[in-house]
Design a protein around this nucleic acid. Structure first.
Lengths: 102, 102
DNA sequence: CCAGCATATCGAGATATCTCGATTTATGGA
DNA sequence: TCCATAAATCGAGATATCTCGATATGCTGG
């Protein structure tokens, strides 16, 4: 696995925060009516919590998606993002491997 | 532990390479006469291997030292750098903890 | 003390990242 | 169809990082 882009994606405190918040849906307001069964959190909620502009958060989520740390799912006009635990673990394994002596 | 600076230090392929090379002394030429017992590798050897300017490598080693990934030891006019395995492991543990779900 | 070598520090130009507001695209409702 | 809302994309200024050459510092041998 190439670590370059994943590490760059994590080299930002807000992006790391977002990944942290996404561990637990209850870090965000309850789903809107009609969204109850959907996994993940919409961009607007993430933006409200991060307190950065809409375009910045959209950009951040795009970066996190590019490196596989999150998965996006569109429902109507909303995009729901959630963590991809397997990809995150795979990265952590590769990262540990590259850094650890043996 | 604050992850900001350590992650930034690792957000560079040459700095990661250097940390990798330092896992094994045999990645570098044998010690000069008089340096046989000394742990670590001098800046010049690292520079030769990395193929970047002396000032860049000195800067890189300073960054890696600041975040604790390497230890510097001066012997005469040479500075010998070696990995601090405990610090690296401590960082990896904190990093895993921040990223993993539980 | 001086010359020479290893390393560190300084200053700067090139490049990349951050973050924004404005605009565009996509969707759903009246 | 028109409008409103959510999200993505675009373009740009501010800031940070990369990397260099030049210079400074520190050490050693003569």
């Amino acid at each position: 696995m190439d670590l370059e882009k994943p590490i760059a994606a994590l080299n930002n405190p807000v992006r790391r925060d977002i990944l942290g918040w996404l561990k637990d849906r209850s870090n965000f307001p309850p789903p809107l009516p009609g969204h109850e069964g959907i996994e993940g959190v919409c961009v607007g909620y993430i933006q409200d919590k991060a307190q950065l502009s809409q375009s910045t958060i959209s950009n951040y989520m795009g970066l996190l998606k590019q490196v596989g740390f999150v998965v996006a799912e569109r429902h109507g006009q909303w995009t729901f993002y959630r963590r991809d635990e397997a990809k995150i673990q795979a990265f952590l394994a590769a990262f540990n491997d590259e850094l650890s002596k043996r």
